[in-house]
Design a protein around this nucleic acid. Structure first.
Length: 317
DNA sequence: AAGGAGATCAACCGCCGTATT
DNA sequence: AAATACGGCGGTTGATCTCCT
């Protein structure tokens, strides 16, 4: 025998949109008793819904700490950056967007951002410029940026490796230290809908508070730039997200004190690159390409100058 | 004003990892 | 160790809304 069921499966449960009456029942029940076991909640609350439906309604709509309405530019930037870093891990992305649900972010990505990136010539899945987006481009800055983009595949594999490594380390740390993470830290890191563990959140920097990602370079600028170049020019937009992607990755490594290992890993990953300046050189390239057309808030030429900013920003990530 | 097309978003579905027995 | 429940996640659907002709 496995675990005993907390409630029996029931036929004839209601589906579809929730009525205000149902919302009220669910809301008042949770306010009074908490949700407890979702499976048994509908019966207790007098609802003819399955527990799953109740949980979804609560987490995506009824929770008081949910922000609704239009996404701000900064939120858009954060989503794009985080998507480049994490892929379709909506709950993980939601962890870094206070008061936004994973469902809302997912919907916004699918209906708005994906299309916008595609319009800018960026593949929304890989965050790399589409092959056809280069056709007809010829300006110096854009060519230079395009030349740098071959590194993105290396970035991608290095990123995945780094993520896995940091997750492993976080898990080991959690196992090594018997005392649980402070409740405050855990709670700040939780998103309204995500149950992402503290150890997983540690991916983004040990002890980092959960605040929105502070973009180093404005996605808005990239959009403007894209408009200036016209619809086909995706490279600039990509460079815009690329530099923040770089900063995000560096932020993680600096904050977690793993930059040396990350550098080593990157070297292994990109065999043809020989020295530890790999990440710095990428940053340099991206920065220099950006500096030709965009005003960057980071040191454009010297990656060493960039690092303190990254370390400072790590606290925000 | 009517109808069609596209956009939006709440909700469902199926799968997976973890907890429990 | 195996079986099962449960909660959570990401993908998808379909009802509704908005815009265009």
């Amino acid at each position: 025998m496995g675990r005993s069921p907390c409630c029996e499966k029931e036929a004839g449960l209601k589906k579809g949109p929730w009525t205000p009456e149902e919302d009220q029942k669910l809301l008042s029940h949770i306010e009074q008793h908490g949700h407890g076991c979702w499976r048994s909640l509908p019966a207790k609350a007098g609802l003819r819904r399955c527990g799953k439906s109740c949980r979804l309604r609560w987490t995506n709509y009824l929770r008081p700490d949910i922000k609704r309405g239009k996404f701000t530019l900064q939120e858009e930037q954060s989503i794009i950056q985080l998507h480049a870093l994490l892929g379709n891990r909506w709950s993980a992305i939601a962890t870094h967007l206070p008061k936004r649900t994973d469902n809302e972010i997912k919907n916004y990505w699918n209906t708005h951002l994906k299309k916008r990136l595609a319009k800018m010539g960026i593949d929304p899945v890989t965050h790399k410029p589409r092959a056809d987006a280069d056709a007809g481009s010829g300006t110096g800055a854009r060519s230079r940026v395009a030349a740098h983009l071959s590194h993105t595949a290396q970035w991608e594999s290095a990123r995945l490796e780094a993520e896995a490594r940091l997750a492993r380390e976080a898990k080991l740390r959690a196992l090594a230290s018997p005392q649980p993470a402070p409740a405050s830290a855990a709670s700040v890191l939780d998103s309204p809908t995500s149950t992402l563990s503290f150890s997983e959140s540690a991916l983004f920097g040990a002890g980092a508070a959960r605040t929105p990602v502070q973009p180093v370079q404005s996605y808005g600028d990239a959009c403007e730039e894209q408009q200036r170049f016209g619809g086909g020019g995706g490279e600039t937009g990509f460079a815009g997200s690329g530099i923040t992607f770089a900063s995000v990755l560096l932020d993680c490594s600096v904050a977690a004190g793993t930059e040396q290992r990350l550098l080593k890993m990157a070297e292994d990953e990109v065999g043809e690159l020989e020295d530890k300046g790999y990440w710095s050189s990428i940053l340099n390239m991206v920065n220099s390409s950006m500096s030709s057309s965009l005003t960057s808030e980071v040191a454009a030429d010297d990656p060493e100058m960039y690092l303190p900013a990254a370390a400072a920003a790590a606290g925000e990530f």
